[in-house]
Nucleic acid binder design. Structure first.
Length: 110
DNA sequence: AAGGTGACCGGCC
DNA sequence: TGGCCGGCCACCT
């Protein structure tokens, strides 16, 4: 990739980076903040690119049911789960326990 | 240039 | 009750 700054991607990164420690959010939530609630798919696409970045905690981003859908994209198989558990989030069978309690609603920086 | 894909979401059958 | 389908927008080949 050249120096092309993908505005859309950066926006997703900006929100993802705002996710506090021990908290998680969903693609749809981020998409909604970006103004494209129906385009949650591309949020995941952006996360794919963010996979190359260290500033974007993709492991804190899951689908709306708290399921680690994208864990398969990480280095290992349970790396994402271990990262979440490391933050105090209980994950069983790729699913976050008490997801609502750990859910963090992202918001655009003012 | 057009077609296909994608870590989703929501609704419908 | 669960599974299937379409929609959405941007990126990739």
């Amino acid at each position: 990739m050249t120096d092309k700054n993908d505005n859309f991607f950066e926006r997703v990164y900006a929100v993802a980076r705002q996710i506090p420690y021990g908290k998680v959010t969903s693609y749809g939530a981020i998409a909604k903040v970006l103004g494209a609630a129906r385009s949650a798919r591309m949020v995941g696409w952006a996360m794919n690119a963010s996979h190359n970045l260290e500033d974007v905690p993709a492991h804190r981003v899951v689908n709306r049911i708290g399921l680690l859908t994208g864990k398969h994209h990480f280095d290992g198989t349970n790396l994402m789960q271990q990262l979440l558990e490391s933050e105090g989030i209980e994950v069983v069978d790729n699913q976050i326990i008490d997801f609502e309690n750990h859910f963090w609603l992202p918001e655009m920086e003012k």
